[in-house]
Amino acid sequence: MEVRTIKVFTTVDNINLHTQVVDMSMTYGQQFGPTYLDGADVTKIKPHNSHEGKTFYVLPNDDTLRVEAFEYYHTTDPSFLGRYMSALNHTKKWKYPQVNGLTSIKWADNNCYLATALLTLQQIELKFNPPALQDAYYRARAGEAANFCALILAYCNKTVGELGDVRETMSYLFQHANLDSCKRVLNVVCKTCGQQQTTLKGVEAVMYMGTLSYEQFKKGVQIPCTCGKQATKYLVQQESPFVMMSAPPAQYELKHGTFTCASEYTGNYQCGHYKHITSKETLYCIDGALLTKSSEYKGPITDVFYKENSYTTTIK
Rank of each mutant, 00 (worst) to 15 (best):
L65A: 10
V203C: 09
F259N: 12
C190F: 03
N129I: 09
K54M: 09
Y137I: 07
A262V: 08
K92P: 02
E204F: 05
I15L: 14
P248H: 13
L290R: 12
N178Q: 13
P78A: 12
A69Y: 06
A145S: 05
T266Y: 03
T159F: 08
N100S: 12
S279V: 02
V160P: 13
A142M: 12
K275G: 00
T55P: 05
A145V: 07
E264M: 07
M209N: 15
G82P: 14
A145N: 03
K280I: 08
A69R: 09
G164Q: 06
L119R: 02
Q98Y: 14
I277F: 07
E308R: 05
P300Y: 14
T76L: 14
Y208W: 00
R184M: 05
T266Q: 01
W94S: 05
G194T: 06
V189I: 10
T266W: 02
T266V: 04
C182A: 08
Y113E: 03
N89L: 13
P130E: 05
D109L: 05
L118K: 08
G272H: 05
A132F: 03
F174C: 02
D13V: 11
T292M: 07
D135A: 08
Y155T: 08
K307E: 12
C182I: 05
T313I: 10
Y234L: 05
A250V: 13
V236F: 07
Q175L: 06
Q195A: 13
F9L: 12
H18M: 07
S246N: 01
P34W: 13
C190Q: 09
K255N: 09
E239C: 10
G257P: 02
V236M: 11
G161Q: 00
A289K: 05
L179P: 03
P249R: 08
F128P: 08
P249A: 09
G82Q: 15
S181Y: 12
G288R: 03
Y234P: 02
N147Y: 05
L212S: 03
K191R: 13
D63P: 14
T198S: 09
F242A: 08
G299L: 05
G267S: 15
Q222F: 09
K275I: 08
V21A: 13
M207V: 08
T282R: 08
L179G: 00
V243G: 00
T260Q: 07
Y155V: 00
Y137G: 04
L59Y: 15
E162N: 01
E144G: 06
N16G: 05
L151Q: 02
Y208T: 09
T91H: 05
K158A: 12
Q195W: 10
A87F: 03
E281N: 01
Q122F: 06
E68C: 01
L133H: 09
S310R: 12
Y311M: 04
E71Y: 04
T302Y: 02
I286A: 05
N61H: 12
F80T: 04
Q175K: 14
I152T: 09
Y84A: 12
S50W: 14
L17S: 13
T103A: 08
G267I: 13
M24T: 13
K127A: 06
D165W: 01
Q222K: 14
P47M: 03
S171A: 13
Y172Q: 13
A108M: 07
L102K: 01
M170H: 00
W94V: 08
I6F: 11
K307W: 08
T313W: 12
A40Q: 13
D63G: 06
H176A: 03
V12D: 03
V189T: 10
N147C: 10
K92V: 10
F305C: 00
K201S: 09
I301G: 01
L235F: 01
H176G: 02
T91R: 06
D23S: 12
H48F: 11
L126A: 01
Y269W: 15
H256I: 15
K191Y: 13
Q122M: 04
K183D: 03
A87N: 09
G53Q: 13
M170N: 01
P34A: 15
F174H: 03
A145L: 05
L121M: 09
L283E: 13
Y234C: 08
I277C: 04
I223W: 03
R141P: 05
Q197R: 09
S279N: 02
N187D: 06
V12R: 08
K127V: 11
E71N: 09
L163R: 15
M85A: 05
Y269C: 15
D180W: 09
L17D: 07
A250S: 11
R184E: 04
K298M: 09
R141D: 05
I45L: 12
D41K: 03
T226W: 07
V203W: 14
Q30P: 06
P249W: 05
K293I: 06
G272N: 00
A289S: 11
V304S: 01
V8F: 04
S294D: 09
R83D: 01
V67G: 13
Y137N: 05
Q251Y: 08
D135P: 04
E264Y: 00
G39P: 03
P47K: 06
A289D: 15
D135R: 06
Y28D: 04
V42L: 13
D63T: 08
Q197K: 04
K46S: 12
K233E: 10
L163K: 12
V42N: 07
H176S: 03
P130N: 03
Q20C: 12
G143S: 03
N14S: 14
S246K: 00
S213N: 04
S50F: 11
E253M: 10
T302K: 01
G164W: 10
L114A: 07
V166S: 01
D135Y: 08
Y113S: 03
F32V: 11
F217W: 07
F32L: 14
T312I: 14
C193R: 04
K106Y: 10
K218Q: 02
V21R: 12
T27A: 13
N187P: 02
P131N: 00
Y36T: 03
T192S: 13
N61Q: 14
T266S: 13
C112H: 02
Q230M: 15
M207W: 04
F128I: 05
Y36G: 04
T55S: 12
C149A: 08
F305W: 04
E68R: 07
S246R: 03
M170K: 01
G267F: 15
L65M: 15
N110T: 02
Q230F: 15
F242H: 06
I124W: 11
L153E: 00
M244W: 03
P47A: 11
D77G: 01
A145W: 08
A69Q: 10
C261P: 00
N16L: 04
A108T: 02
P248S: 12
